[in-house]
Design a protein around this nucleic acid. Structure first.
Lengths: 178, 178
DNA sequence: CTCGCATATATGCATGGTCTTATATACCCA
DNA sequence: TGGGTATATAAGACCATGCATATATGCGAG
C-alpha cells in the first residue's frame, strides 16, 4: 500500500519510468522506506493493470525502451483515498530489541558490544540525516516542502531519542550488574 | 531470524508448547514484535526440522495433544550465534511517514487530521507502555530484568519523541501555511 | 441451553519484500 | 582491453508475515 502511495504520489508530479521512480525513491524517501527495484517494477505493473496509471513506450537507441507512466484520473482518486484511509495498526518488528531482550546469555560484555553496535548505527544514521537536512535548510516556502522536511525531522528526533536511550540503558546496566 | 531468537530464548528457560510460546510472546515482547500464531507454529516446526529443538508429545484428554518443545545443544549454539551476529542493516518501512510525505494534496485540514490520528496512536501506545512499566517497576535485581526493562523504556522514549515531533511539526505547518 | 472463551495444533492462500540473474549498449578510467 | 557505472526492464525463487479457517472439547456466564 505504501509503495503504491509513493509511486502514485510521484507520478502525480510528472510522468516517469520505473527507472526514474527507483532513483527518486532512493533520493527522497529512502530514510523511511527501503524499496527494492524489482518490487517497484512489479507494483508499477499492478498500477497499470488496475488502471491507475498508463504507459507510453518510448523507443530509444542503444538502450531498452523507456516505459513512461502517467497517472490516470482513477489513480488520483486511489491516491487520495489511500491518503485518507485510517492509519493501519502498527505491527512492530524491532530485531535489535529482540536481541537485547534475550541478550542475558551473552554476559555483560556481550551486551555492551550489542549496545555499542547499536550506537554506531544510530550515530551514523543521525549524521546522514543531518547532512540531508542541512542541504534543504531554507525555511520551507510551501506546505509540501514543510511535509518533506517533517519526515526528515522525524528520523532525526528518533535517532536522537535512541542515543539518549542508549546512555540511559548503559547506566542502568552498570547498576544492575553490580 | 528474530522470531527464531524469541522461540529459542524462551525455550532455554523451560520447555514449552507452541500455544505457551504464543501467550508468552503476547505477554512479554509484543511491544516490539508482533507475531502471528500460525507463524509461531511454522517457525517452531522449522526449529525441530533443523534439530534446534525436540518435541515430546504429551497426550491430554479432551484437548489436542500438547507438543512440548525443549531446546537442544545445537539450539543453544544457534541462539548464541544469532545474538552475536552483526546487526542487520535497517530497512525502514514507515507507512505513516510515506503518507505525510505525499499529503500535500489533502490540503491543510487533511494534513492536520493525519497528524491528529498519529497523535492518538502515539498517546495510546505511550499510555499502554507506561502501565506495563509501572507494573514491573522495582529496581532491576539482575541483568536479565534490566534488559527486559530497557526494551520497554525504548518504546517509551520513542513514543515521547514522536509526540514532541508532532508538536514541532504542527507548529511548522502553521508557519508554512501562512 | 447456547454462546463465547480457553486449550491446542495446523493448513491454505495471498501479499509484500529481498536477492539474484538476464539482456543490451555506451562511456569512462586505469 | 578490461572493469565499473549508467541506462532500462523483467522474471524466478524464496521467505516472512498475515488472515482465515478447521478440528475438538470442557467450562462458565447468562
Amino acid at each position: 500500500m505504501s509503495l503504491t502511495i509513493a509511486l502514485l504520489g510521484m507520478l502525480e508530479l510528472s510522468p516517469l519510468s520505473g527507472y526514474d521512480l527507483n532513483k527518486k525513491i532512493e533520493a527522497s524517501v529512502i530514510h523511511f522506506w527501503s524499496a527494492d527495484q524489482s518490487q517497484i517494477y512489479r507494483t508499477l505493473s499492478r498500477l497499470v493493470a488496475d488502471g491507475l496509471a498508463e504507459v507510453t513506450v518510448i523507443p530509444q537507441d542503444g538502450k531498452p525502451d523507456r516505459r513512461e507512466h502517467r497517472i490516470t484520473a482513477a489513480g488520483r482518486e486511489a491516491l487520495d483515498a489511500a491518503l485518507r484511509a485510517p492509519l493501519e495498526p502498527e505491527t512492530p518488528h524491532e530485531s535489535f530489541l529482540m536481541r537485547l531482550f534475550f541478550a542475558d546469555g551473552l554476559g555483560i560484555d556481550g551486551v555492551r558490544e550489542l549496545l555499542h553496535a547499536r550506537r554506531e548505527d544510530a550515530t551514523g544514521l543521525l549524521a546522514r540525516l543531518k547532512v540531508i537536512d542541512a542541504r534543504g535548510s531554507g525555511r520551507p516556502d510551501d506546505v509540501g516542502q514543510a511535509l518533506r522536511r517533517a519526515t526528515l525531522r522525524n528520523g532525526i528526533v528518533h535517532a536522537e531519542a535512541e542515543l539518549a536511550w542508549l546512555d540511559e540503558t548503559e547506566s542502568a546496566l552498570v547498576t544492575a550488574a553490580r
